[in-house]
Design a binder for these strands. Sequence first.
DNA 1: TCGCGAATTTAGGTATACCTAATTCTTAGG
DNA 2: CCTAAGAATTAGGTATACCTAAATTCGCGA
Lengths: 233, 233
Amino acid sequence: MTAGQRAKNNTESVDNYLKAILYLSGVAECRVTIKALSERLLVAPASVTNMLQKLAAAPVSLVKYERHRGVQLSASGKRRALEVVRHHRLIETFLYEVLDYPIDEVHEEAERLEHFISERFEERIAAKLGDPRVDPHGHLIPTMDGKMPERLPRDLILLSDVEEAGAYLIDSFSDRSVNTLRLIEACGIAPEVRLRVKKCAPKGYEVSVGRSTKIFDLSREVARDLRLMRLPK
Amino acid sequence: MTAGQRAKNNTESVDNYLKAILYLSGVAECRVTIKALSERLLVAPASVTNMLQKLAAAPVSLVKYERHRGVQLSASGKRRALEVVRHHRLIETFLYEVLDYPIDEVHEEAERLEHFISERFEERIAAKLGDPRVDPHGHLIPTMDGKMPERLPRDLILLSDVEEAGAYLIDSFSDRSVNTLRLIEACGIAPEVRLRVKKCAPKGYEVSVGRSTKIFDLSREVARDLRLMRLPK
DNA sequence: TCGCGAATTTAGGTATACCTAATTCTTAGG
DNA sequence: CCTAAGAATTAGGTATACCTAAATTCGCGA
Ligand SMILES: [Mn+2]
Ligand SMILES: [Mn+2]
Ligand SMILES: [Mn+2]
Ligand SMILES: [Mn+2]
């Protein structure tokens, strides 16, 4: 990626479109609709169409776009999206581990800075952190060479989908809802920590965390933000 | 400063105008010409006039501007400029001390990031660094409450203005020229280090640094970037 | 004191990234 | 198989921050 190319393509706005497409297309990498992007980015559908046309028409096009049939990332679009996600998650880890940020403030700061740090900055914080594999929310960090690492095949389930009491391991949780994050932290919830589900009721869940026996009530709302790994019985 | 106000006023571009005015108006805070700003910011004079008119007309105006008579910072313009300079110098110090950046790379990174870090980020790196007084180039860091600290009254002189051999203390040096910075570092030059000037010739200077007896040749070019403190005899 | 050149300002234009309103396309249900 | 609701696109407009070229203003030196 030459300096010139980068200057033209990678504005903050473009980065955010690429990240949104990556996220919305999921592991199956299916086509993403204008409407979905419009909702995620809080931008009018007309603006999305406009931007996608530009991204597709660029000298080195970042998306595959066909009128009325949605978008997918091109190879270089995906490369850039993963680079930005790597920035985001490294920055979150750095803020949390080195600068002692409260967990509910790392996301917002990372969301801004991810677009403005240099390759050197990326390299230095990765080194400082010992090339971490996951961020403070348990999300995998794309590698230096631009690939999302394979996760060990885990039997993952959202807490909101759990229907029977039992023991689980916390895999990861959303980085977006400040309320959820505060609550989660108050319970001692963190990636790789044990979670015992005591009761599943329609309005919420009773759980205990780690080796503590204290019982916490988690709402359905919060439960949708919590991804668990089923433990073999 | 409310969030709304901030969103409207403090773009990267506005920040850079304010910093440039602060710098060019000097300690005497005299008026700055459009031409001087145009040259420092690498922007056409017409663009400068345009921007200054907007800054002056803003709901809370950032500059005092009168047609054909140059600009000065208003109280709030100065406050913001000093805040950005504080960001810049704290970031430089952080990159140098915590992330082990080479000295000649800190400025460029800081020049970008200074506009995008939050108050929390500022607070955390300042804490991590123990509220440093100066940056790695020896420049004073504005305080948290937005004032440039008084320097102890020092008898300062540029190396390029030195006319007689003698002993000096290095006060500070420019953060802008990568070439100068590399050279300076190779000599072991750093703030508060002793510099002995052995010979002043028209094409340059012969100096030794710290307790070393090794002689280095510094060009006039480089000498203009080096600020020294005269030592009492 | 007058005019000329430099500095500044005005006028008109570009690119990015948004917006709303009007139009067109797609497709699922009747 | 047709149609209308919803999705997408087009058309036309805004704000920021630049640009060049043309017009104006200032102040210094003859
Ligand atoms: Mn972002
Ligand atoms: Mn995260
Ligand atoms: Mn800057
Ligand atoms: Mn500096």
